[in-house]
Design a binder for these strands. Structure first.
Length: 424
RNA sequence: GGAGAGGUGGCCGAGUCGGUCGAAGGCAGCCGCCUGCUAAGCGGUUGUAGGGCCAAAAGCUCUACCCAGGGUUCGAAUCCCUGCCUCUCCGCCA
């Protein structure tokens, strides 16, 4: 959420900034209601102040016991005032709801360093690492490799759950587990605290990180009782400190969290229908940071490097792209995507997304901190990035390390976790 | 799932015949005094958010907040209803 004081003072600036993201937002209604809200608030507070003082007077009069006429008169007056107040309060509540709702649907403002662009085609490549492997045979897709090796079963997954599900089997399942352990070990060695949170969360948590109210259709929801399945560990982990005031000494805080993730993929019919790339359920190790505002862009760089390191250790070629304004996520001020090379597709595919949300999520989730020598509170900055998506990493390994005979070499760093050198 | 108890400020804890309670007291913290050092002692101080005054800061002032949301009342931490959470016992279960 943006700062409402800033929005009402600078609607033109916000409008302009959000146009860069492709949002056309009309502020007139908002400004109108916001003005009324403040006027109404003033009026209500005045009436409440009056009621408070008269009620006090009534209490004092009652003690003296004789001026019952005056008491009755005051009570009648206050009864009437109370009725007026109730009408105004109802009106205020309606307006507050409108204003709040408007604010919840406003996306974050892109950072000055975010390249301008319309869609993902205008993202800027920042750097590349590694060389795509050369094959003296036509490289296969991971779903063919997986099927031949008997380590991924899409067909039975379709039977027991439906499309966009997969079953990992034998060394495939072990590879999944090896990747989880490898990534968690790597990140926790660097100071990230491992957390394993609930993967069913409430509405407030989803609102805190920005999935709700705008992206309800992307989420799996259960009723009775009401919960949402997390689309990423970002949600529970960022909400760890919702409604908290941290001390400056606690910052920065780094978390690493492995969780399953669930997404409806409602808008992507026909996209990546085969293979592991786009699943309703997938595993991911997520990195989440809580930092002081002045450090957050430096922290975004180091967060991205920490995610890249996973690929480097696995020997998987990748590139880093800076998302342009038109491709930026709703809550993000700046995002780097890391794209891994997939020989089966002959292209780079997203495997991590590292974002600085500045105070956008902190304001929604009310996550603040207090500086040692200053009074008052400030919002923290939150960041997160995949480190990495497990399923897509597994895909990249199968495709990059495939051999002519159909076997797959296990990257060096995974061998202690796998117990074998080759999957065949 | 059944029965019961409870949710108060950073922490502990008082406060139910509704009023002077943003909330006693203690602890912790901060500032000062005192003290050979430490401890003890003494005085003061310490929540969050929003509005108004102010060019702004400081400051002053008002409003709201005693789990959340409704209700009763001139007035609610205190009474009523609903929800959430915690604890105890029984049952069930990985």
């Amino acid at each position: 959420m943006l700062d409402i004081k800033f929005v009402r003072a600078n609607p033109e600036k916000i409008k302009e900034a959000l146009e860069k993201r492709g949002y056309e937002i009309d502020f007139d209604n908002f400004l109108f209601f916001e003005k009324e809200r403040l006027a109404l608030l003033r009026d209500i507070e005045e009436k409440r102040a009056l009621r408070n003082s008269v009620s006090q007077e009534i209490a004092n009069l009652k003690k003296s016991k004789d001026s019952t006429d005056k008491i009755d008169k005051l009570i009648v007056e206050m009864r009437n005032l109370g009725e007026e107040l109730a009408i105004s309060e109802k009106r205020l509540k309606d307006i507050e709801e409108k204003v709040e709702n408007f604010m919840l649907f406003l996306p974050n403002i892109p950072h000055q360093t975010v390249p301008f662009g319309k869609d993902e085609n205008e993202n800027i490549e920042v750097r590349r690492w590694g060389e795509p492997p050369q094959f003296d045979f036509p490289p296969m897709n991971h779903w063919d490799i997986g099927e031949i090796l008997g380590i991924i079963d899409f067909e039975r997954a379709g039977k027991i759950a439906g499309s966009r599900f997969a079953i990992m089997r034998g060394l495939g399942a072990r590879l999944e587990r090896a990747l989880i352990n490898f990534m968690l070990d790597l990140h926790t060695q660097k100071g990230y605290i491992e957390v394993f949170p609930p993967i069913l969360v409430n509405k407030a948590s989803m609102t805190g990180t920005g999935q709700l109210p705008k992206f309800e259709e992307d989420l799996f929801r259960i009723t009775d009782p009401e919960f949402y399945l997390i689309p990423t560990a970002e949600v529970p982990v960022t909400n760890l400190h919702r409604e908290e005031i941290l001390s400056e000494d606690d910052l920065p805080m780094y978390y690493a969290s492995f969780t399953p993730c669930f997404r409806k993929e409602a808008g992507s019919h026909g996209k990546d229908v085969r293979g592991l790339i786009r699943q309703h359920q997938f595993n991911k190790v997520e990195l989440v940071k809580f930092v002081k505002p002045e450090d957050s862009y430096e922290e975004l760089e180091s967060l991205t490097r920490d995610a890249e390191e996973v690929l480097q250790k696995l020997g998987l070629p990748y590139r880093v792209v800076a998302l342009c304004t038109g491709d930026l996520g709703f809550a993000s001020a700046k995002t780097y995507d890391i794209e891994v090379w997939l020989p089966g597709q002959g292209r780079f595919r997203e495997i991590s997304s590292c974002s600085n949300f500045e105070d956008f999520q902190a304001r929604r989730a009310n996550i603040r901190f207090r500086r040692r020598d200053k009074k008052g509170t400030e919002f923290v900055h939150t960041l997160n990035g995949s480190g990495l998506a497990i399923g897509r990493t597994l895909v990249a390994i199968l495709e990059n390390y495939q051999q002519k005979d159909g076997s797959v070499i296990v990257p060096e760093v995974l061998r202690p976790y796998m117990g074998v050198d080759v999957i065949k």
